[in-house]
Nucleic acid binder design. Sequence first.
DNA 1: GTTTATGCAAATATTTTGCAACGTT
DNA 2: AACGTTGCAAAATATTTGCATAAAC
Lengths: 155, 155
Amino acid sequence: MEQERFKEVLRERGLKVTNQRLLVLETIAGHPGEHLTAEEIYELAKEQYPEIGLATIYRTVQVLVELNVIDKVSFDDGFVRYELGSAKADSHHHHHAICQECGRVLAFEGDLLETLEQALYDTMGFVVTDHEVKLTGYCKDCIKRKGQENMEEFN
Amino acid sequence: MEQERFKEVLRERGLKVTNQRLLVLETIAGHPGEHLTAEEIYELAKEQYPEIGLATIYRTVQVLVELNVIDKVSFDDGFVRYELGSAKADSHHHHHAICQECGRVLAFEGDLLETLEQALYDTMGFVVTDHEVKLTGYCKDCIKRKGQENMEEFN
DNA sequence: GTTTATGCAAATATTTTGCAACGTT
DNA sequence: AACGTTGCAAAATATTTGCATAAAC
């Protein structure tokens, strides 16, 4: 089970297994594709464990990022967000398309970067361990809503 | 000249041409590839114009982002940064490789996303107007420094 | 029993806003 | 003259830290 693996990883590093840490991970894992902020994690976690503190959320997500269990992502909207890490098989090569009109974040899978990564190693000696692609544009609904007359704005 | 074009764009939108706005753009343009934070822009701008206020920097970068003259980028290190926009020919398809060891940000050019963008339009109707690729990994120097014995950490 | 983590409150850091004075049109 | 912009200070947000208590090992 996923949780057992996490406990192991904590112990390996001399970190303690606490209810708070398990709960934070469970909360993030329980909301796949949602890119939660610290505040959102806090609100959700409080439902299960009302005495938890916000500082614990911040400290815990730092640990989880450190352990490569979750990833930090930001969509430049002023919030730092967290999602299950790319080390987890099911979210490897998981990227984001952000609508500049409505702010909706669409997740998509894609695995088209291998050649790029190889070129980077060949030219600069940089070893890629993870990648994230952020695409900005307009989603279907916003295109429909804005209509044909404003399309020249689109670049 | 670049500056004249900017003044036009401001006037087109009914915004005023001020020394502060010109200076902020000039400051960002004068530091290509540096991804300045608001605070850094403030410090640099003060050298030219000591009475400028930090709030003006924040308000101006918002305007510049709005006008697509600069882009907001974040490397998940807690700072929001700005760089000349992708609308500018010379930085189109300009991406970032971030070393997780030393934090160095390498910029590179790449134009390998066309097929991905086409697929996104075909499957989800999403029109891409800009893209950013963030690669995380280890730069040449850090690989050398860490040596062979720690390589298993790399994933 | 020792060490690490938690919760709270206070401290920092970052960004936004209200408003009178000022600059641009 | 009208209106948008600036600078300052205050407010609002977001995140980190110190410390005594509590939990994990």
